[in-house]
Simulated assay, not measured.
Amino acid sequence: MHIHSLAVYPVKSLAGIAVDSMSLDEFGPQGDRRWMIVDGRQKFVTQRASPELAMVSTRFDGADVVVSIPGEGEFRLVPQADPCDVEVWRDQVNAVLGAPEASEALSRFCGKRVYFVYMNEATFRRVDPDWVPAYRRVSFADGFPFLVTNTASLDELNTRLDQPVDMRRFRPNLVISGADAWAEDGWTEMMIGDVSISLVKPCSRCILTTVNPDTGVRSPDGQPLRMLASYRKTPDGVMFGVNGVHNTRGLLSVGDRVSIV
């Protein structure tokens, strides 16, 4: 088994960036989902309600995040001094507003008022203690620093679909190859070099998986979620991939050997 691919998502629910390697910091993959979009009530906004966000690309310019908004151009996301309390799932989180020019451009693109917000180092959002007793932090990711998926599981799913989908639908950070389909259901810890990652819970999937990452349009037939629900549904949801928390920092690179312990 080895790392097939890696991805970082600088802004929650915008397009991700495929990378050859990623450094891990206290939050998880460095630079992952430290930015988020909120509405006028300061609640998080994602592709679940705004699938067009898939068309907004991101890139790093040094330590800065640059977004490219269709019809509007490129904007550098710059944290301001203005604090705000924002909501992501059940968590109330301290954040700061981004520069207004980018927020105004994204508002025009989405057709509603939205704002970029940033999680700085002073903010501590805890990983769900029901799954991770240790006092660990997480960015604006849904709940855990990592999402790990398996290429063989996607291949198996695609044998059931009329139109195959690619792994971007599932927005993983870490994609593993060389394992059997659905082997990840039984994984509890992986070692990649000196990096240890605990796999703490299966990942329940939602309507976001039906958004085509190339067009920002939902699948009219509800795929691949509808097919997954026919054979991967549990009392906790429709499962694809596993959520993880890193126990050590380090560097992960495509091609690295993966061991399950």
Results as ranks from 00 to 15, higher is better:
residue 151 T to H: 06
residue 52 E to N: 12
residue 110 C to E: 01
residue 106 L to D: 00
residue 196 S to K: 15
residue 16 G to W: 04
residue 149 T to G: 00
residue 238 V to S: 03
residue 70 P to I: 04
residue 174 L to Y: 09
residue 20 D to Q: 15
residue 194 D to F: 08
residue 203 C to Y: 05
residue 199 L to E: 04
residue 120 N to D: 09
residue 242 V to Y: 07
residue 163 Q to V: 14
residue 34 R to L: 03
residue 9 Y to E: 02
residue 32 D to E: 04
residue 16 G to C: 02
residue 222 G to S: 05
residue 146 F to N: 03
residue 2 H to F: 14
residue 61 D to R: 13
residue 254 V to H: 11
residue 102 A to N: 09
residue 118 Y to T: 01
residue 197 I to W: 06
residue 195 V to K: 11
residue 94 N to P: 09
residue 7 A to D: 02
residue 132 V to F: 04
residue 72 E to H: 13
residue 45 V to I: 15
residue 190 M to R: 10
residue 108 R to C: 03
residue 40 G to K: 12
residue 101 E to C: 03
residue 221 D to R: 13
residue 36 M to F: 03
residue 102 A to M: 07
residue 51 P to A: 05
residue 206 C to W: 08
residue 164 P to E: 03
residue 147 L to C: 09
residue 178 G to W: 13
residue 94 N to G: 14
residue 8 V to F: 05
residue 123 T to I: 04
residue 257 R to E: 12
residue 161 L to K: 09
residue 71 G to M: 02
residue 114 V to N: 00
residue 71 G to C: 01
residue 257 R to Y: 06
residue 207 I to Q: 13
residue 29 P to Q: 03
residue 77 L to G: 05
residue 212 N to W: 05
residue 133 P to L: 08
residue 236 D to E: 14
residue 59 R to Q: 15
residue 156 E to D: 02
residue 209 T to E: 00
residue 231 Y to S: 02
residue 246 H to A: 02
residue 27 F to K: 11
residue 240 F to Y: 10
residue 137 R to D: 01
residue 205 R to K: 10
residue 15 A to I: 07
residue 72 E to K: 15
residue 42 Q to T: 09
residue 148 V to N: 04
residue 96 V to E: 12
residue 124 F to N: 08
residue 62 G to A: 07
residue 10 P to L: 00
residue 171 R to W: 04
residue 172 P to V: 04
residue 188 T to Q: 14
residue 223 Q to P: 00
residue 21 S to L: 10
residue 235 P to L: 06
residue 179 A to H: 10
residue 206 C to F: 06
residue 248 T to Y: 04
residue 138 V to Y: 06
residue 222 G to H: 07
residue 166 D to E: 05
residue 68 S to T: 15
residue 79 P to R: 14
residue 152 A to M: 01
residue 152 A to N: 02
residue 178 G to C: 11
residue 208 L to H: 07
residue 50 S to P: 01
residue 184 E to I: 10
residue 89 W to M: 12
residue 254 V to A: 10
residue 44 F to Q: 07
residue 207 I to P: 04
residue 22 M to H: 11
residue 222 G to I: 07
residue 229 A to I: 04
residue 141 A to T: 15
residue 146 F to R: 06
residue 91 D to Q: 11
residue 117 V to D: 00
residue 95 A to H: 13
residue 157 L to D: 02
residue 221 D to N: 13
residue 30 Q to K: 15
residue 197 I to S: 04
residue 140 F to S: 04
residue 94 N to V: 11
residue 203 C to T: 10
residue 199 L to R: 13
residue 116 F to C: 00
residue 92 Q to E: 12
residue 109 F to M: 02
residue 42 Q to E: 05
residue 165 V to F: 07
residue 31 G to I: 10
residue 131 W to E: 06
residue 204 S to T: 06
residue 140 F to N: 05
residue 240 F to N: 01
residue 250 G to K: 11
residue 158 N to G: 00
residue 127 V to S: 01
residue 37 I to N: 03
residue 192 I to H: 10
residue 86 V to T: 12
residue 75 F to A: 02
residue 245 V to I: 12
residue 249 R to Y: 06
residue 99 A to R: 13
residue 205 R to H: 07
residue 182 W to Y: 11
residue 25 D to T: 09
residue 103 S to Q: 12
residue 150 N to K: 11
residue 110 C to P: 01
residue 204 S to V: 02
residue 44 F to H: 14
residue 154 L to Q: 08
residue 162 D to K: 13
residue 39 D to H: 03
residue 141 A to M: 07
residue 99 A to V: 12
residue 33 R to H: 01
residue 125 R to A: 00
